[in-house]
């Protein structure tokens, strides 16, 4: 009597979404869908999951939108401070380390955010960093995170066959694809993932980072 029968309040939600990033010799493709959902509800069909953190560095994130936004804001603020202090843009590998530290800082009340960071490194080569929610990360040639990642990862593995990270001496992880081949592959894997993953869909946002700038492209996808 008098005891409320109610599910415990949770500070987390999963707002779904899928992110993919592919690194090439002189480019990086970062892509994510624009659906934001909660449970079986779609909250909005047009919410960008890709955040530009520096000139040559973008982050695509899925998970809990409020945490993702907080994370993006922290990184943007830290990047502003970096620019004031160093008079230059942060490099992608530096941002990768900062992201890891920022995630681990909240190790015991984590950001529920699953990120891929893509851009160009100091040599102008494409780079992709992939994370878990508490900050462990790795530089790879391609990666996917979020609700559709289980459907996409094996396809990327099959198509891109990156050299084993166990090889000695280490081999470059960048993919051999041309830029347009990589963009087409991204479109294909998303079109497929969206067939089965209800948390992704509506629209695909593709960003291509190259030395001479950033290009954006959109593709309509299933809305059911």
């Amino acid at each position: 009597m008098g005891i409320k029968q109610q599910a415990n309040w949770s500070p987390y939600d999963n707002n779904g979404g899928t992110c993919v990033a592919i690194a090439g010799v002189d480019y990086c493709v970062i892509a994510a869908d624009t659906r934001m959902s909660t449970g079986y509800n779609i909250l909005t069909r047009d919410y960008s999951k890709i955040c530009k953190l520096a000139d040559k560095c973008l982050m695509a994130s899925s998970g809990f939108q409020a945490d993702v936004k907080a994370l993006q804001k922290v990184l943007s603020a830290r990047h502003l401070i970096y620019q004031h202090q160093h008079n230059k843009q942060m490099s992608c590998p530096a941002m990768a380390q900062l992201l890891s530290n920022t995630l681990y800082y909240k190790r015991f009340f984590p950001y529920y955010a699953f990120n891929v960071l893509g851009g160009l490194d100091n040599e102008g080569k494409g780079c992709v960093f992939t994370y878990d929610a508490v900050g462990s990360y790795e530089r790879v040639g391609y990666s996917t995170q979020g609700s559709g990642s289980t459907l996409i990862m094996p396809v990327l593995d099959n198509k891109l066959k990156s050299p084993s990270p166990l090889l000695l001496p280490a081999k470059d992880a960048v993919t051999p694809l041309s830029e347009s081949e990589a963009v087409d592959l991204v479109k294909d894997v998303f079109a497929s993932a969206v067939e089965r993953d209800i948390y992704s869909g509506d629209k695909l946002e593709i960003v291509v980072v190259k030395a001479d700038g950033i290009r954006r492209e959109y593709l309509e996808m299933r809305k059911d």
């Binding site: 949770s10 500070p11 987390y12 939600d13 707002n15 934001m36 909660t38 509800n41 909250l43 909005t44 047009d46 919410y47 809990f64 939108q65 409020a66 936004k69 907080a70």
Partner: peptide, 18 residues
């Protein structure tokens, strides 16, 4: 209440979302 936020052309909370 947990900070999830977005903009849209039309918005409805609770039952309205359904």
């Amino acid at each position: 209440m947990i900070g999830v936020h977005f903009e849209d052309n039309h918005i409805a909370t609770g039952f309205g979302n359904h």
